[in-house]
Every structure is written in structure tokens, then in C-alpha cells.
């Protein structure tokens, strides 16, 4: 005796349902890829900048060499500063080159003096205290620990993450909404069969279990299809980005597989929970 499903689900509806889950999983993968890419980029920026600070002494202040010595003394006696090295004229010229070009007469211009400061990332000196000490001794020396720039990079990454999280929630809601509609119409089409199951002694959770099983498989199939499509799209995007530097690399390694797995699990969970809640709610309201 073969055990047929107690509810004769229509396969057409199932295919449509799995397609919608696949589309949502596809979009969710890209939302996650965007969020991770942004985090990584912001991390790379801030990592490159932490542990370093700069003091710039304006050329217009006069006697820069004398000021430079005072500034170096102050910096070296500041707690949290590991080293302070003034940039040579050539190094300053190299920094300015993108703006002024490699002009040999640059040395004639009053270029600012720049001190590269290496700071202890674990014990960063307080920016305002360092600036106050510099202000007392050398006018026109500006201490910059890149805090503003790091903050902006971090908040940009944060904004991208929030948008991605929002997109994930929207995907989940869309899947849940479609499951709810589909289960409701299924329950009303199958109301006679379900009444018979109830009369045969089935609890509501037994009926819900039949739907949960059904939507588990639809969620799993849809999720896997969506993630495979997303993976394909990302691999080709990545191949494109190695050709054109304008596109950021997605770096499809390591945790990517866990991420795709996470999207599938998430899609399945949303499907199963939405189905369960809908069945239990509908039956309790009187079916």
C-alpha cells in the first residue's frame, strides 16, 4: 500500500510558488552580496587608515623648519604616539603630483610640511588634546587622525547594510505573503477533504503539518534554484570585474557558500512558518 499525500496538491500551483521563492532568494543573495561588499570595502578603508595620523604645518606660517622641530618634540612626548617622521620634500611632491603634475618648479612654491605619525591603535591619543598641545606651541599645525574620513566610510557601509537588511525583510515578507495567499486558497479548495481529516480525528497541527511539508519542499526547491541562479550571475559579474576595474570585485570565496546556504534555510523557514501560522489560524477561525 503506497501512502499518498492526504491532500491532493496541484502541481501547477507548486511550480509557480517555487518560482516566486526562487526569484526572492535570487534578490536576497544580491542584497547580501551588496551588504558584504560594502562592509568589506569600508573595512579595507578604515584598516588602512587606523594606526596612522598626519600633522600638516601650513607653509604660510613661516619658519616651517623651526615649527617642525617643535611639533616633532610634542608628538614624540605624546602618549599613544609610536613614531613621528616628517615627509621629505620628494615625498610631499609625490603626494601633490596628482593635483599639480610633476612640475620641477614645485620646490619654489611654499609646500606644507607633513609629518607621518604612527599611533598605537590600541591606545589612540585623544585628537582634541593633541591638537590643543600643538596649538599652544606651533600655530598652523593641524593634527588629523582621519577620524572624519573613517566615520564617513563606516556610516556609508552602515547605510548600505541597512538597505540590504531592508531588502532581505522585503523578500521575506513577499515570500510570506505569497505563501499565505496560496495556503488560504488551498485550504478553501480542499475544505471538504480537510473536514474529513478533522472528522477522522486529525488535530489542527496534523493538517498544518501536511501543509508545512508541502511548503518545506517548495521553499527548498525555490531557494536552491534562486541561489544557484544568483551564484551564476555573481560569478559572471566577478569575471567581468576582473576585466573592468570600474566594477568592485565580489570575492567569491569561503563564506559565500555559507551565505547561499543561509538564504536557502531562510527561505525554507519563512515558507514553513507562514504555512503553519496560516493553517492554524484559518482552522481555528472555523473551517
Amino acid at each position: 500500500m503506497r501512502n499518498s499525500s492526504l491532500i491532493p496538491f496541484r502541481s501547477g500551483g507548486g511550480i509557480l510558488m517555487a518560482l516566486i521563492v526562487a526569484a526572492m532568494a535570487f534578490l536576497a543573495c544580491f542584497a547580501l552580496a551588496g551588504a558584504l561588499g560594502a562592509s568589506k570595502l569600508a573595512g579595507a578603508w578604515t584598516d588602512g587608515l587606523s594606526g596612522a595620523a598626519t600633522v600638516r604645518i601650513g607653509a604660510e606660517e613661516g619658519a616651517p623648519e623651526q615649527q617642525l622641530d617643535i611639533v616633532l618634540d610634542i608628538l614624540k612626548s605624546t602618549e599613544g604616539v609610536i613614531d613621528a617622521v616628517p615627509l621629505t620634500e620628494d615625498e610631499v611632491a609625490a603626494l601633490l603630483e596628482p593635483w599639480f603634475g610633476a612640475a620641477p618648479e614645485l620646490s619654489d612654491l611654499p609646500a606644507p610640511a607633513i609629518v607621518a605619525v604612527t599611533i598605537d591603535s590600541a591606545n589612540e591619543p585623544d585628537t582634541s588634546i593633541v591638537q590643543a598641545r600643538l596649538d599652544g606651541a606651533a600655530t598652523g599645525a593641524v593634527y588629523d587622525d582621519h577620524g572624519e574620513w573613517r566615520g564617513r566610510a563606516a556610516s556609508a557601509a552602515h547605510a548600505v547594510r541597512s538597505v540590504a537588511l531592508g531588502a532581505l525583510i522585503v523578500c521575506a515578507l513577499a515570500i510570506a505573503a505569497v505563501v499565505i495567499l496560496s495556503v488560504r486558497s488551498g485550504l478553501s479548495a480542499q475544505s471538504a477533504n480537510i473536514a474529513t481529516l478533522r472528522l477522522a480525528g486529525a488535530e489542527d497541527r496534523y493538517v498544518a503539518g501536511l501543509y508545512q511539508t508541502r511548503y518545506f519542499w517548495l521553499g527548498l526547491i525555490g531557494g536552491i534554484v534562486g541561489c544557484i541562479l544568483a551564484l551564476g550571475a555573481m560569478v559572471s559579474f566577478d569575471a567581468l570585474s576582473t576585466v573592468s576595474r570600474a566594477l568592485p570585485s565580489l570575492d567569491l570565496s569561503g563564506y559565500w557558500w555559507f551565505l547561499l546556504l543561509g538564504v536557502v534555510v531562510f527561505a525554507v523557514l519563512v515558507c514553513v512558518l507562514a504555512a503553519r501560522i496560516t493553517v492554524l489560524g484559518t482552522l481555528r477561525r472555523g473551517a
Binding site: 501512502n3 492526504l6 478533522r198 488535530e203
Partner: peptide, 28 residues
């Protein structure tokens, strides 16, 4: 509702319109 389900397991019903599930075999 759960108790109703459990009570129904102690009550066998032969309905006037049979209420068989058409997609299942007689044995099922």
C-alpha cells in the same frame, strides 16, 4: 479543538454521503 480530535478517535462515523477521499485508494 484538540480534545474534539481526540474524542473523534473514539467515535467511528459512517456518513450518509460516505465522505471518502477520492484521491486515495480504498485501503488508504
Amino acid at each position: 479543538r484538540d480534545e474534539i480530535a481526540w474524542f473523534r478517535r473514539r467515535i467511528g462515523v459512517v456518513f450518509q454521503d460516505f465522505r471518502l477521499l477520492d484521491h486515495l485508494t480504498a485501503a488508504e
